[in-house]
């Protein structure tokens, strides 16, 4: 049994609610948090990685495919978990069980509800990223102690998705459009944002597009930290970090607007 964090701030009370909900279902996430990254790294990193041609290794920056893939998958997993947490639970709280409406009837404000949910997602991401990073280290796939910082980098990557997606989810009355977010947003990003192969393999005209997606910046950061190559070009790392923070700031602002509008208008 996990201890319940007690808090008196209004944002904290929203966080507490999400935590209580989660405590009832956390068995499911144990599986996805521990086992699924380990299985993915074994199959794609070790198994498939052994077929990566020696000539291709230079395009990976001279590291093994496992070392290349692992931090990319870390960022991609953060994206997927965050996106899921930002869709169904947010719409559910507004439409299915209307729990956010119930909270709004207390001293808790729409802003508290928005920020409390983001805080909860950040906490979930921290746990997921920490476990994943531990597994990366156990696989011997991390080349630098800086890999520890890949945890906050992955959390920021996730939030860069969670905030704008939650803003959208707060406007929805059915989950119908969520499948399109995953099908035409999350899945292509998962496959084409430099997680599985370097962007240089993409057609030239597509490469600038990747700059517009948070996952590209997230992968650049987690990979730079895990391989230790980030120190070679700290200015570039700063650009990636600023890009992620910009997505988070814009998404959070949008969420505050849509949550407020939805709760006030009913």
């Amino acid at each position: 049994m996990i201890a319940l964090p007690r808090t008196n701030s209004t944002v904290g009370r929203v966080f507490e609610h999400r935590f209580l909900q989660y405590r009832r279902t956390f068995r499911a996430s144990i599986f996805s948090s521990f086992l699924s990254p380990a299985l993915f790294l074994t199959a794609m990193g070790v198994g498939l990685g052994s077929y990566v041609s020696s000539s291709a290794v230079s395009s990976l920056g001279g590291v093994s495919y496992l070392a290349f893939l692992a931090p990319g998958l870390l960022a991609a997993t953060a994206m997927q978990s965050a996106s899921f947490e930002a869709t169904f639970p947010i719409m559910g709280g507004l439409v299915w069980n209307k729990i956010f409406h119930a909270m709004y009837a207390t001293p808790i404000s729409p802003r508290d509800i928005a920020l409390g949910n983001l805080a909860w997602i950040a906490a979930r991401l921290t746990f997921i990223a920490a476990v994943f990073t531990l597994i990366i280290v156990l696989f011997g796939a991390a080349a630098s102690p800086l890999v520890v910082l890949a945890i906050p980098a992955a959390v920021l990557t996730g939030l860069a998705f969670a905030a704008p997606i939650a803003a959208f989810a707060a406007t929805q009355r059915t989950p119908d459009r969520f499948s399109n977010i995953f099908r035409f947003g999350i899945t292509p990003l998962f496959l084409f944002s430099g997680t599985f192969f370097p962007l240089t393999s993409l057609p030239a005209f597509l490469q600038p597009l990747a700059w517009l997606t948070p996952l590209y910046h997230g992968v650049a950061l987690t990979r730079g930290l895990s391989l230790g190559t980030i120190v070679n070009d700290p200015a570039f790392a700063l650009v990636h970090l600023v890009a992620l923070l910009a997505f988070i700031a814009a998404g959070t602002w949008a969420l505050l607007v849509t949550m407020e509008r939805r709760l006030v208008r009913g």
Binding site: L48, V52, S53, Y65, P188, L191, F192, F197, S201
Partner: peptide, 13 residues
């Protein structure tokens, strides 16, 4: 198919 077959596949002979 595009991502794994062609993208990742480009690293594999």
């Amino acid at each position: 198919l595009l991502g794994i077959g062609f993208g990742l596949g480009s690293l594999i002979g």
